[in-house]
Nucleic acid binder design. Structure first.
Length: 546
RNA sequence: GGCCCCUUGGUCAAGCGGUUAAGACUCCAGAUUUUCAUUCUGGCAACAUGGGUUCGAUUCCCGUAGGGGUCACCA
């Protein structure tokens, strides 16, 4: 077979050579240990936690080594493509503070010297390599139809043989003469370009940065390089792109492990240096006592949009992923409560191999911790951003009362041990609603133990003695004396011991005040809340109970 | 079914031949607090299983079981 002639039949328009591409996409000029990583999502419109999970790893590895982190859109599958998916993806990544140095940063914009970053736009690059491989006798055009392929598969299943095109199943198309090929093409028969694999029983060994040695059979399949529309399969595109874009590390889900032999085969055939593979564990979920893969249909928490909608703070999501990803992050966080998570030195060797469960309780805990440490101004900004997208009514409130909101956010949070009552922005809207007249609602009932008469007296006396400028200690002294006047116990224990001697305890008194002021029995410090609300609102809310 | 990956408490996890088998979350109890939210103290709870190797295995090897992945002109 004259492979040169075959290459010319198959790729008549390709004039460039791999060497030309090497010149066009030179080795990156980076410090010695700089890591170059990427995420390569396909634009299906669904952005899942796993995308962020792998993005976080890539981003940290690249940026903590002064390397490059880029975004490549793997849009080789036309059928799965969804309009607007790329915008959704970029928006989601931006929302979660994942920043790319280059790539498909804005929609349909290629940004960087290794462009284009959309695989569909790289067709000619793949064809250069495909032509080269053809010249080397490493490929052949295959004219098998979908029906013929089905028949082969059925036969193989029936015979309990391995499925795929190899050995005798490949023979017919492998041995086509140049004339037959030319004729098929002239008559418009569609063809795919297949890799001409070695028939072998050898094993290969790949060193995975997360998993260590992976041993598996060497590729023996004549897998597809180019589909009939000339677009490459993932396998071919991955090898070509990560080579010419000079990725040092390929971070991807473990579902790719089984196709690793194909990738290794291509790298070896092309005599290209393989990147370091990092196959990450799949995110799991527990159900009925069993672990299972998170499912798009059943588990809302798989979608990144879920975390946005719930208003879970970006930093919390990062810290959560970091604790799941790097076993020493939690320890580090405990030792360095004031540092940014960006100061944490991420390491591949500390990564877990088995599938991590998405533990929403843990996320909540981390989220409360993160929010409790966040300065009120930053909290306000993040919260407002979220409200503008998901709760316009509340956004209006925040914008109308910025000062009051910031004061409210500082209630009990400026001390060394800040309050941890904020979980996420959605919950914050609910929790903070009593600070605004517009959203104030009476949610809890007044304590039953106190009769109406005593209650009215309580508010009457409280208002009579109320001085807004009192400091906290003076205020509380007054509450104590009010408690005595009402015939209630100042010390709750006294009331517990002798409930008959008192009408109630200071707990009842403060509860009444709290409910009148905030609408609920569980709320922060009354004095502090009063000073956020201001004298007018305080009196207004209390007077209703006279 | 073939091939591959994985397996320490309910969850995340340290451990890398000798440990009272860390720590975090959840849950429970107690303390503190004017209610909450905190904070503090304590508690429940684990090396899937069978065989080796070894003076000694959670740790190394083999088998079994369980979970997961993959076997496309999808990524």
């Amino acid at each position: 077979m004259n492979y040169q002639a075959l290459a010319n039949i198959l790729f008549p328009d390709v004039t460039e050579t791999p060497q030309d591409l090497e010149k066009k996409y030179p080795v990156r000029n980076l410090p010695e240990h700089a890591v170059v990583t990427r995420i390569g999502p396909s634009p299906t419109g669904f952005v899942h936690l796993g995308n962020l999970y792998n993005a976080v790893i890539g981003e940290r590895l690249a940026h903590q080594s002064n390397g490059v982190f880029y975004l490549r859109i793997e849009d080789t599958d036309d059928k799965r493509k969804v309009d607007g998916a790329v915008e959704t993806l970029i928006q989601a990544m931006n929302y979660f503070n994942v920043h790319f140095d280059e790539g498909a940063i804005e929609n349909n914009q290629n940004n960087g010297m290794y462009a284009p970053y959309y695989q569909r736009q790289r067709k000619n690059i793949y064809h250069v390599i495909a032509k080269y491989l053809t010249q080397q006798g490493k490929t052949y055009p295959c004219f098998l139809t979908a029906e013929e392929l089905d028949t082969i598969r059925e036969q193989q299943t029936a015979n309990k043989e391995d499925i795929g095109i190899y050995g005798k199943y490949a023979l017919a198309n492998r041995n086509l003469s140049l004339e037959q090929i030319q004729e098929n093409i002239n008559s418009g028969k569609p063809w795919v370009l297949r890799f001409r694999a070695e028939q072998t029983q050898e094993l290969i060994c790949v060193e995975d940065a997360i998993r260590g040695k992976l041993e598996m059979p060497r590729n023996y399949l004549d897998f597809v390089l180019l589909k009939s529309d000339g677009i490459p399969t993932y396998h071919f595109a991955h090898v070509v792109d990560d080579y010419f874009m000079h990725s040092t590390h390929v971070i991807r889900g473990e579902e790719w492990i089984s196709s690793l032999p194909m990738h290794v085969e291509l790298f070896n055939t092309l005599q290209w240096k393989q990147p370091i593979y990092c196959h990450t564990a799949t995110l799991m979920k527990i159900e009925d006592g069993k672990k299972r893969k998170l499912s798009k249909r059943k588990d809302p928490e798989l979608a990144l949009a879920y975390y946005q909608q719930e208003g879970i703070c970006q930093d919390a999501v990062w810290e959560f992923l970091l604790t799941v990803l790097n076993s020493n992050f939690e320890e580090w966080r405990l030792a360095n409560p004031e540092l940014s998570y960006l100061d944490f030195k991420y390491s591949i060797s500390k990564m877990s191999i088995s599938g991590a469960l998405v533990d929403l309780d843990k996320l909540k805990d981390i989220s409360k911790e993160v929010l409790s440490k966040m300065p009120a101004e930053k909290l306000y900004a993040g919260w407002l951003d979220w409200c503008k997208q998901y709760d316009l009514e509340f956004a209006k409130l925040l914008e109308t009362y910025p000062e009051r909101t910031i004061k409210a956010l500082n209630v009990g949070r400026t001390a060394k041990k800040p309050r941890k009552d904020l979980e996420n922005w959605k919950q914050a809207c609910e929790f903070m609603s009593f600070y605004y007249q517009e959203s104030f609602q009476l949610q809890d009932a007044m304590p039953e133990e106190i009769d109406e008469e005593t209650r009215k007296l309580c508010f009457k006396l409280y208002l009579e003695n109320y001085a807004h400028e009192d400091d906290s200690a003076t205020w509380f002294a007054k509450v104590k004396s009010l408690t005595e006047q009402l015939g209630c116990a100042v010390k709750p224990k006294d009331y517990k011991k002798n409930p008959d001697q008192y009408k109630g305890s200071i707990i009842h008194v403060t509860n009444m005040l709290r409910i009148a002021l905030t609408g609920r029995a569980n709320a922060p410090d009354i004095w502090e809340v009063s000073h956020v609300l201001g004298e007018e609102i305080v009196k207004n809310r209390l007077e209703k109970w006279l």
